Simulated scan of single mutants.
Amino acid sequence: MKTTLRRLIFSLALLATGNACAQLPELATCTRSANLLACQDAEGNAYSVNTVGTTLYLRGFEKNGNRYWAQTNSRFGQLTFFTGIASDGEAWVGYTRRVGWTTINRFSSSGGSRAKFTCSRVTGC
């Protein structure tokens, strides 16, 4: 999985669990409405987040790989599952589980990337 997309998935996973602002790797300019957040960073990457109940629908463009992608996050209590696909055919799945102030995160992609990491609101990731 491309580095930019990996950072974005990580950031959005944190956003979905309430740990976002202090963890974002770079700042982006965003516009917000009631259910939609649209952002673009200084590198030309763009994404949007649409909220419908406990489901997040994400779409974006990755400048480095010149590819579009889409991801769906579904939350069930303290557990959030996500699946995504990119315009080059790469697909990924993963989950984020919240335990107190800690999140346990895991994902894998059809491109061979996989990761498991734990984040804390106090100490970070």
Rank of each mutant, 00 (worst) to 15 (best):
T54S: 10
A91D: 02
A38I: 02
T55N: 08
D41Y: 10
V93E: 09
T51C: 01
S87W: 08
N64G: 07
L36K: 12
T54P: 02
V49G: 04
T96Y: 11
L56W: 05
Y47M: 05
C39I: 15
L79T: 13
E26A: 13
L56V: 01
A38L: 06
R75F: 05
Y95E: 10
R98I: 13
G84S: 11
V93L: 11
G77I: 02
N66R: 08
A28T: 09
S87D: 12
S87G: 05
A34T: 10
I85Q: 15
C39F: 08
F82G: 12
E62Q: 06
E26I: 06
A38Y: 04
C30S: 06
G89A: 07
Y57R: 12
Q71W: 01
N66Q: 09
L79S: 10
Y47E: 01
F81K: 13
F82I: 07
V52G: 01
S48A: 14
Q71S: 08
T31N: 14
A91N: 04
Y68V: 02
E62Y: 03
T51R: 15
A42C: 01
R75C: 06
L27W: 09
G65D: 02
T31C: 09
Y95M: 13
A28Q: 04
F76R: 01
S74H: 07
N73G: 04
T29H: 12
S48E: 15
A34Q: 08
Y57Q: 10
L56T: 00
E43F: 14
T51D: 06
R59S: 15
E26C: 05
L58N: 06
L36Y: 02
T51Y: 08
W69F: 15
D88C: 04
A91Y: 08
R59D: 05
G77E: 09
L79D: 11
E90I: 03
L58W: 03
L27S: 13
N64E: 11
F61H: 09
N45E: 04
W92N: 07
R98D: 03
S48R: 15
E62D: 14
F81I: 12
N35P: 06
K63H: 06
R59L: 07
V52W: 03
Y47P: 00
N50C: 06
Y95N: 14
E90V: 05
R67K: 08
L37N: 03
G65M: 01
S48D: 15
F81L: 13
R67M: 02
N66D: 02
A70G: 13
L36V: 10
N73F: 03
T96E: 09
T83D: 11
N64D: 11
S74L: 05
G89D: 02
T54Q: 10
R75H: 03
A46L: 00
Y68K: 06
E62A: 12
A38D: 03
F61C: 01
W92Y: 13
L27Y: 08
A34S: 14
A42G: 07
F81V: 04
T55D: 15
A86H: 06
L58Y: 04
L27G: 12
G89R: 10
R59W: 04
Q40C: 09
S48G: 12
A70W: 05
T83W: 08
T29W: 05
T29D: 13
T54A: 11
R67H: 00
Y47V: 01
P25L: 01
Q40Y: 03
Q78N: 15
W92G: 00
G84T: 10
L58P: 00
E43I: 08
D41S: 07
A34L: 14
T29I: 14
L56H: 03
Q71P: 00
K63I: 00
D88H: 11
G44A: 08
E43Y: 12
F61D: 01
